[in-house]
Design a protein around this nucleic acid. Structure first.
Length: 424
RNA sequence: GGAGAGGUGGCUGAGCGGUCGAAAGCGGCGGUCUUGAAAACCGUUGACCCGCAAGGGUCCGGGGGUUCGAAUCCCUCCCUCUCCGCCA
């Protein structure tokens, strides 16, 4: 959520920034709602002040044993008026809040201009795409030929956009998870957390998936409604919802491995082949909660932590700064990591690292006590994939493939696979 | 699943329906003392909203109700704890 005060005091400037990302702020509606809110709030508060003083004098009179009947008559009418105005105010506040909850974050000044993916800006490249003396195959061809990847079975069990992995590939995926968790906990200072995979609506509102993107989520309706997490970002970031952190507890750095569930509504026909876009996939997620002044430096280091995974796996990639029009709803700035996929002959997103500034913190009421001011202030939150495990599996398969269809195991993964050097 | 107890400020924990935004302790901050620190003592210390300010308002798990007035009474939901049952 944006700072309502800033929205009130400089609406045109905010609208201008939102326009950068292609969002048209309805200033007319905002003005109308704001004016009604203000008028109602003033009159409600005035009525309350009157009721309070009257009630207090009734209390005092009663304590002295005086007759309170005339005083009661005086206040009689107040209650009804107050009630009506209060209801009106609550209605406007609900409308205003709903309006605010659907406004995306403001892009940081450093975010490149642009309307779509095409305008994203390449920041740097690492590694060379491997040269093959043969026509490289994609992970589907490789996996099915090996007999370790079965889409038909998954379709029978669940449906489209699911997969089953067998034997060495299932194990390779587990090795990747283990490797990533070890790297981030041992070398990058993250604490591993285990969190619920089903969450309530408040958590999703906190990180920004609700109310606007309900159709992207799987909903479990029973005695109580839960949502399957679309990313560990939701449960992990919500660890600080409603908290006031001590300065000494900052920054918080968490890493979590979880499955992720996405309905992929509206993605019909997109990435239908293979495991690039699935309803269920594994991800290792990095989350940081930092002091406001430190969030942009943290975005750089967090992105570097995700890059380390690719570097140690020896996978060529590039870092892209998303343009304003391609930013996610809650993000102020995002770097995507794109890994080279020989099967597609191009770079594909494997990690997304974002600074949300106070956007999520405001929705969650996640604060820290600023020793400078002594007051609780909103924290900044960040997260990034470190990495999307399914896509990393694809990248390893395609980049380490050999002409005979076997797959080499990257050096860093071998300790997790009992020294295994090759699959197939 | 059954029976019971409870949710109050950063924490612990008091609180007859009316000067309660809330006692007390701890913690924090400032000071006295001290070469310095500790201890002791004194003072101070919640959040949010509107407002330039003065000031006003809201908040005692969430929501609703009773009342001139609710932390205190009623309903409901959520959460925590104890005992029994069941269970990976």
């Amino acid at each position: 959520m944006l700072d309502p005060r800033r929205l009130r005091t400089e609406p045109e400037a905010v609208a201008g920034l939102l326009a950068r990302r292609g969002y048209r702020l309805d200033l007319g509606r905002l003005t109308v709602l704001e004016e009604r809110r203000k008028a109602l709030q003033v009159s409600v508060q005035e009525l309350q002040a009157r009721r309070n003083t009257h009630s207090k004098s009734i209390g005092r009179a009663k304590a002295r044993g005086e007759d309170i009947a005339p005083l009661l008559a005086e206040v009689a009418a107040l209650g009804d008026r107050l009630d009506a105005e209060k209801r009106a105010l609550e209605g406007v506040q609900r409308e205003l809040n709903a309006f605010l909850m659907e406004i995306p974050n403001l892009p940081d000044a450093s975010v490149p201009e642009g309307a779509s993916e095409q305008d994203n800006e390449e920041i740097r490249r690492w590694g060379e795409p491997p040269a093959f003396a043969f026509e490289p195959r994609d992970h589907v061809a490789l996996g099915e030929a090996l007999g370790y990847m079965d889409f038909a079975a998954a379709a029978r069990i669940a449906g489209a956009r699911f997969v089953t992995l067998n034997g060495p590939l299932a194990r390779l995926q587990r090795a990747l998870i283990q490797f990533m968790l070890d790297l981030h906990t041992r070398e990058h200072g993250y604490t591993e957390v285990y969190v619920p995979y089903l969450v309530n609506a408040d958590s999703l509102r906190g990180t920004g998936q609700l109310p606007k993107f309900e159709e992207d989520l799987f909903k479990a309706e029973g005695e109580r409604t839960y949502y399957l997490i679309p990313t560990a970002e939701v449960p992990v970031t919500n660890l600080v919802r409603g908290e006031i952190l001590a300065d000494g507890d900052m920054p918080r750095r968490w890493v979590a491995h979880t499955p992720c569930f996405r309905s992929e509504a509206g993605a019909h026909g997109k990435d239908t082949r293979g495991i690039i876009r699935q309803h269920q996939f594994e991800k290792v997620e990095l989350v940081q909660v930092v002091r406001p002044g430190e969030s942009y430096a943290a975005l750089e280091t967090l992105t570097g932590h995700a890059e380390q995974v690719l570097q140690r796996l020896g996978l060529a990639y590039r870092v892209v700064a998303l343009c304003a029009g391609d930013l996610g709803f809650s993000a102020a700035k995002t770097y995507d990591l794109e890994v080279w996929l020989p099967g597609q002959g191009r770079y594909r997103e494997i990690s997304s690292c974002s600074n949300f500034e106070a956007f999520q913190a405001r929705r969650m009421q996640a604060r820290w006590r600023n020793p400078g001011t002594g007051r609780p202030e909103l924290v900044h939150t960040l997260n990034g994939s470190g990495l999307a495990v399914g896509r990393t599996l694809v990248a390893v398969m395609e980049n380490y493939q050999r002409e005979d269809g076997s797959i080499g195991v990257p050096e860093v993964l071998r300790p997790y696979l009992n020294g295994l050097e090759s699959i197939g």
